[in-house]
Design a protein around this nucleic acid. Sequence first.
DNA 1: TATGAATGAGCGTTCATTCAT
DNA 2: GATGAATGAACGCTCATTCAT
Lengths: 197, 197, 197, 197
Amino acid sequence: MGRPKDSEMRDSILTAAFRMFGERGFGGTTIKDLAQSLDISPGSVYTYFSGKEELFRCTVEEGWQRFLLEISRIVTAPKELKERFDSILDYCFESLKQALPLLRGMLFDSRQRRLLHENLQLLCQLLEQLIREGQSQGLIRIVLAEEHVRAQIKINVFGVLSSVALAQDETLDREIDVVKSAVKHLLYQRLKLEDTG
Amino acid sequence: MGRPKDSEMRDSILTAAFRMFGERGFGGTTIKDLAQSLDISPGSVYTYFSGKEELFRCTVEEGWQRFLLEISRIVTAPKELKERFDSILDYCFESLKQALPLLRGMLFDSRQRRLLHENLQLLCQLLEQLIREGQSQGLIRIVLAEEHVRAQIKINVFGVLSSVALAQDETLDREIDVVKSAVKHLLYQRLKLEDTG
Amino acid sequence: MGRPKDSEMRDSILTAAFRMFGERGFGGTTIKDLAQSLDISPGSVYTYFSGKEELFRCTVEEGWQRFLLEISRIVTAPKELKERFDSILDYCFESLKQALPLLRGMLFDSRQRRLLHENLQLLCQLLEQLIREGQSQGLIRIVLAEEHVRAQIKINVFGVLSSVALAQDETLDREIDVVKSAVKHLLYQRLKLEDTG
Amino acid sequence: MGRPKDSEMRDSILTAAFRMFGERGFGGTTIKDLAQSLDISPGSVYTYFSGKEELFRCTVEEGWQRFLLEISRIVTAPKELKERFDSILDYCFESLKQALPLLRGMLFDSRQRRLLHENLQLLCQLLEQLIREGQSQGLIRIVLAEEHVRAQIKINVFGVLSSVALAQDETLDREIDVVKSAVKHLLYQRLKLEDTG
DNA sequence: TATGAATGAGCGTTCATTCAT
DNA sequence: GATGAATGAACGCTCATTCAT
């Protein structure tokens, strides 16, 4: 009996792809280099994925689906608004840290632009839902036109992502901390919540 | 042989490169296609630039230098703070519209990450300078820690750029209008300025 | 390890190879597909054959040997000349129908040229033997130089094979009928035999 | 000015392709080997042909068109029937000698089967036209059903081609002579023409 | 200077073959 | 014996770069 075509190697490839696509982008990543980094042969990649594009898509989709599902879970949880905001902030920045290579990979290839935009929009919608709830509970300090609220959410979400994604690796952790802290302040100001961070 | 200066051809190449890098990204642009669009031979490109990478770098740098110089000029102009903010907003969004292809080219290629980050940081610094001036004049409503101000500038600058860059072409103009309007509102709130936009 | 003899598996592989080489040619047939069609693993093929080339050679040889043995049996059977010619025609065209895929496989791969030529020559020799017998019995209408007889046999044998092999699949059955009928007429003319077909 | 993209190199490639496709078939010919045989780089082939398939098609089509045009010219020439038959025989076998590599290339790749069959059918039609003329002039000894005449032409044309194409190179010239002589005899018998060959 | 045909390293991908299980 | 995941050489093809003209 040959070795099982189970998920061990497949996961190894996804992990390595996750890192390499992030470091070099889609175009900058070659199957040969990817295989070499795993000490396997280029051909082996094709045992688990039908091609480079599919490998990228799998790498991306799995992560986003898990992420958005969790955010959705937090948004609809039967908890205080503040607690949910805190959870989301924590989870988002934790995920950002972990998924950064892949997010860079998406940012760095135009073919993935639509995919990234759509997934970020879904995140914005979930956040907007939470903010609307806050407004209806009278917790939102400043009332803006719906369009402006939406735009500010978007600018902040995209801004956090891109400012972190474009940061140099040496300053990455500090960048994330600073950005997270700033977002928290902004949020608490807007929501009349006390800053406990 | 060095690069001939003051050459019209060099500028033509930069202009065509600006457009093509933006439309197709770095990897999607071939020297042959670029040359064909100018009715010159591929070899001629190498008379003015040592290679594709340098051409990209030059295309980017020239644009950014012009842009940052103008911003700097506005920041230090002997005018009311509000007027200078308005000018900057107008000029930034106008430039964003025009330079979007190239900005996407930078965003979509990991090799250009550092370059884009550095230039955006320079823009942030100029904006921060203006805001500090507003603070010292007592025009800033809410006083934040220096670090938070800096982070919020960055998030907004990067957020504006990336939300526009990732937008689909069909919704681009509307996206820019909405984002610009939202940024203006935010700014005027913070600066105790009256919204006249 | 050598080839196991008397193995059912070996025969199964040869049968499947016969069909697949014919349908897709040598280059178009992959060991993996062949194995899949038999619900065995690619590696198992190598238990019975040392490689793809040997498998092809074996597939071809076995068929030809069976075919030529039967032709030889008919030629030397103690029957009327006409009856033997009729039997040969029937058997040849029946075999042509069945073996066509493989014959195409041989025709469509230059590596098999010699093999095909040799086997067709053997068939020609058997037919010539029969015709010589007819000549010696005074049944042949026109006496040609030995060389011309041999050449005409060859042209007809090769012509029948290649005109059928090159026919499109939709017109194949009709092509075979027409060619067989024409060959029969020719033969009966030459042999002063009555056409009863 | 660079070197002209004129027909010299293109013709060299066609000539080399003609030989190599013939020797090894389509699948057996690699662009790298082809280029090496010409002492050029693989990439250069793509300066003149968009790919391997197009190169093959060009190699084939050019030859066949020239050939069929000449046959057509002979068939319709204002000359004696016998003279035209002689010319055709001479030209066909001369062409066969010269084009053999390519014909083998077509025979040895199933993708080209239809192309070869169609072109051979066109040749058969031209020959049939000539034979019909002979019949109407009362020069044909034996009258067969139209279908049988057509089939016999086809068998002979395909038979000549394939018996020569499958011959080993060492016996090629002799094979061609013998086959040509046999065809001539057959033809003269049928046409009540005197054999002067 | 300008040219553009020639170059050749390197790409994604295929598949006959091997060998640890 | 049978397995099938792993292998890696080789494929067709691309395109940044060079250099004879």
